[in-house]
């Protein structure tokens, strides 16, 4: 906890000492950690793997970009980027959360692909051309937007870990039948985790759209985003509070180093690095929390 607090303070002050290049690198790490935290609300607490969770991220990004494009202003745009993924999650989760194991993972993937195809085929979403946001914002503002969302995520996980909710979620992920026998409404708590996760993913989507200034379906519904976020979770599964943040930074720095050394072959090296990490740490990274 001390290490996490210290790291958050360092992150809050970091832009004072960073140039534009490192600000972008650290922003990328913050972005990855946001995806990981949001995915972990489902993965860690229900033992369900939302492989297609970027469906809610993409939905948030598009809702925000379309709202800004229509001249709604940032506050209504942010609000709608929470509301639409939330409503969508409420709509699909009663069915989705009744699926078990791999079927759930496939179900979320189906949502992701469906939304990607739909976004590309509709005219008002910009089709395959995507959407350019009318106004960009300074990269420093984007950084602090990601940082604020990160603090929100950490506070959310912290409050779950310190409340009775942690016990309830650990019960239902350990043994569904046992949890029911002590009066836990398993489906309700699973739906709650997906809905809260979708809110964070929607907000992260809007922050991403602002940061990039341009979005298209292949970027915001990209399976690569899920793969990277899940790699973070697999490596940090023992530490729901600090794990996604530290591991995201570690991975993002590795990716960046590989990319800067060898832009042509960095994809190959990245793959090798991932295989090595999983081979060396098959049970995830561990540190003193």
């Amino acid at each position: 906890m001390k290490g996490l607090s210290l790291f958050l303070i360092v992150l809050a002050l970091a832009p004072l000492f960073l140039d534009a290049y490192w600000l972008r690198v650290i922003s990328s790490a913050l972005f990855l950690s946001l995806l990981a935290y949001a995915f972990n609300l489902v993965f860690h607490y229900t033992n369900y793997a939302p492989f297609g969770g970027v469906a809610f991220f993409g939905l948030g990004a598009y809702t925000f970009a379309l709202s800004v494009e229509k001249g709604l202003g940032y506050v209504p745009a942010f609000s709608s980027s929470i509301l639409i993924p939330l409503i969508f999650a409420l709509f699909v989760s009663p069915v989705l959360m009744r699926l078990k194991g791999h079927y759930f993972a496939i179900g979320t993937l189906a949502l992701q692909v469906m939304l990607m195809e739909l976004t590309e085929s509709l005219e008002f979403t910009g089709g395959t051309k995507g959407i350019v946001l009318p106004l960009g914002i300074p990269s420093l503002l984007s950084y602090y937007l990601f940082f604020s969302l990160l603090v929100l995520c950490v506070l959310c996980v912290f409050s779950v870990e310190r409340s009775r909710l942690r016990l309830i979620y650990y019960m239902l992920r350990s043994d569904e039948l046992g949890a029911r026998s002590v009066g836990v409404n398993v489906v309700l708590y699973r739906v709650l985790s997906l809905v809260v996760s979708s809110v964070f993913l929607g907000l992260t989507g809007s922050a991403f759209a602002l940061w990039q200034g341009y979005i298209d379906a292949h970027t915001v519904y990209s399976p690569l985003l899920s793969v990277k976020a899940f790699l973070v979770l697999v490596l940090s599964s023992h530490f729901p509070l600090s794990g996604p943040l530290f591991t995201s930074f570690l991975l993002e720095l590795i990716f960046e180093a590989l990319w800067s050394k060898s832009p042509e072959l960095h994809g190959l090296f990245m793959g090798l690095a991932l295989v090595l990490l999983i081979l060396v740490f098959p049970r995830g990274l561990r540190w003193k929390s």
Binding site: Y170, S174, D175
Partner: peptide, 17 residues
């Protein structure tokens, strides 16, 4: 249950939440 199924990550006391 026929085969007891304690919750994996919970202490004995936490089972009685």
């Amino acid at each position: 249950f026929q085969i007891p199924r304690p919750f994996a990550d919970l202490t004995v006391e936490e089972h009685l939440f």
